[in-house]
Design a protein around this nucleic acid. Sequence first.
DNA 1: AGGCGATGGGAATGCGCTTTCCCAATCCAG
DNA 2: CTGGATTGGGAAAGCGCATTCCCATCGCCT
Lengths: 361, 361
Amino acid sequence: MAASTLTEVARLAGVSPATASRVLNGSARKPGKDIAERVRQAADSLSYIPNAQAQGLAKSSSGLIGLIVHDIADPYFAAIARGVQDAARDQRKMVLLATTGGAPAEEREAVAAFAARRADSIVIAGSRSSRPEDGDDNAELAAELDRYCRNGGQVAVVGHPVVGATAMEGYHVVAVPNQELAGALAARLAENWDGDFVIVGGPEGLLTSDDRVRGFQEGLAKAGRAPAEILRTSFNRSGGYEAGLKLAARIKAGRAEDGGGSGRKLCIFAVNDVMAIGASAALRAEGLRIPRDATIAGFDDIETLRDFRPALSTVRLPLEDIGRLATRATAPGAGNSGGQEEDTVPPVSGEVTLRRSTEAA
Amino acid sequence: MAASTLTEVARLAGVSPATASRVLNGSARKPGKDIAERVRQAADSLSYIPNAQAQGLAKSSSGLIGLIVHDIADPYFAAIARGVQDAARDQRKMVLLATTGGAPAEEREAVAAFAARRADSIVIAGSRSSRPEDGDDNAELAAELDRYCRNGGQVAVVGHPVVGATAMEGYHVVAVPNQELAGALAARLAENWDGDFVIVGGPEGLLTSDDRVRGFQEGLAKAGRAPAEILRTSFNRSGGYEAGLKLAARIKAGRAEDGGGSGRKLCIFAVNDVMAIGASAALRAEGLRIPRDATIAGFDDIETLRDFRPALSTVRLPLEDIGRLATRATAPGAGNSGGQEEDTVPPVSGEVTLRRSTEAA
DNA sequence: AGGCGATGGGAATGCGCTTTCCCAATCCAG
DNA sequence: CTGGATTGGGAAAGCGCATTCCCATCGCCT
């Protein structure tokens, strides 16, 4: 028993397929009350479900929103995904998910796949890379997006524009003030702290990481502090852990030098919460305590991590809103009312949130 | 410049659309080498992208896998989603995401939407509900799934079969031994603990929660212990927090009675990690310490929560594998080789993992 | 009362692709 | 050298729906 079709419904109702179509789906022309009712009855007596593929083909639009993330199990992306999902529901669309691990080549593939499915819009989350080895892939990604937009697609990128993308119609970016916020965080930390700072960052070329590092350094400079040393590692929990191990060794060594005095503690800034948690775990594993032996701050304010103890100082980012905003930006009728060239959705704002992990005990 | 079509490619290559189709997509018939090459060149000179909608219409299959979760931002579902995503990639399919908050009515809608899109298979994660007020919706959900399966769809449910679903072809369930594992956990906890147990469970009728509660009680019984009291609350962090508040009050009261002696501490079993974390936070907020003033155990072993201190005793569930398994079960050519009526994928296995949070200090 | 514009339903076309079915050319065995 | 079996490409018929025309009907104004 195959799914029933519009034609069958029409036949049962004794009308033409055209009429059936008009009543069952929103059409400009509204058939007469009585006929409409008959069709509707026929429809659910056959438990008719319209074939979205066919509808899409005919209307050339699919009701699909493509979402590209590095890893859906990462709470950062999961939070954004929730926002996207939520906005999608408002638009009565479904979301199509692609995880790419952050590789531009895979992102390109995902975009192509979305394009093939005629997704109405695409939301790209996750840090852009400007590493030289990603150059070619980035170019191809940009080209693919360009093509997608030219064919009427809408794309929203959270954070940075895709490297090499030429601003075009249908291309939106949700700006995240990583740099400013990291600066603000540095400023606040510098207020109650006179020791050294260390930054645990992601690999060079990861734009989000770079921004946060740069902002933090700027903040430090404005507060009259020396620039912090930068430890580069991977942009996830295990990267944080590794860096934490190194720092622990260093702290212990320093402590041995001045005979156990708490002379110059370290304040660690990990460029995201997950890394900060990893670093904390490493310190703890090495017998160090926070904030006694070192203080630490992260970035993002991941919800799941809020119960972590000592509570992590961080910068709250409205992740869910970001996802929502990005999705809305791609909706027809959204934004660009000002007639600007490169339209940018209202920038999101974060908030420095100091908690116990950086208390100068 | 609209996306180019197969016909255009064919014309450019000087062949018929039929031939172009045969070379560009896997067909049984392989056109001659030279022709194939010509078509391929034409295709990427036009940067042709096949229209998946049209393909789907013609082949009546879409390369889509529908995934239904309660909340994608919940790390439990995020982990499963990662597994699904991974398996989907192997099958060269894309995943369509729907979040329902666990309401059967919304799940029904999601299934209908997936059916409309002609998803090849559907994976349903998240606890089933057997609450009386969900009865009707469950029935409709079951009916919808039934229809979907009859039309050739494949569905996999993780945990429990949908209430009221009649076993049918294409319907798979990934059994999760919640009950056994909860029992095992209880047994292990009873070994090093002679105090009282309290269970913090989800609302009655949430099957996963019920199973874990039941299993835990059984384990207790086998160990010769009295059944634990059950606190019902919502199945998430805030539910855990609320319960934690109540328990904190009780602990303090008890402590006051016997004059501060650690006479009879409580061992709390929260039916999932997120609730356990919530409860821990509440206890801590009330000035109680774990495991000093009470011990606590969870369930799931959520990855993001592993760095939590004190480390949470729990039952490790291979969440990602579960997602993968469920997805594979729906792949053509998977399972049911034994010729059994109601085929069930190999049951997953978990592992009791005792950590500091239940150390009888 | 006659004619005009509105109104409402149906026929037909096309969206882009797959897949029979058909036919011409080629091949091998007898 | 011929006949039947193969091979390889093309024509055409859908897949299920939206939509543009087109036509009959009805109501209304003058």
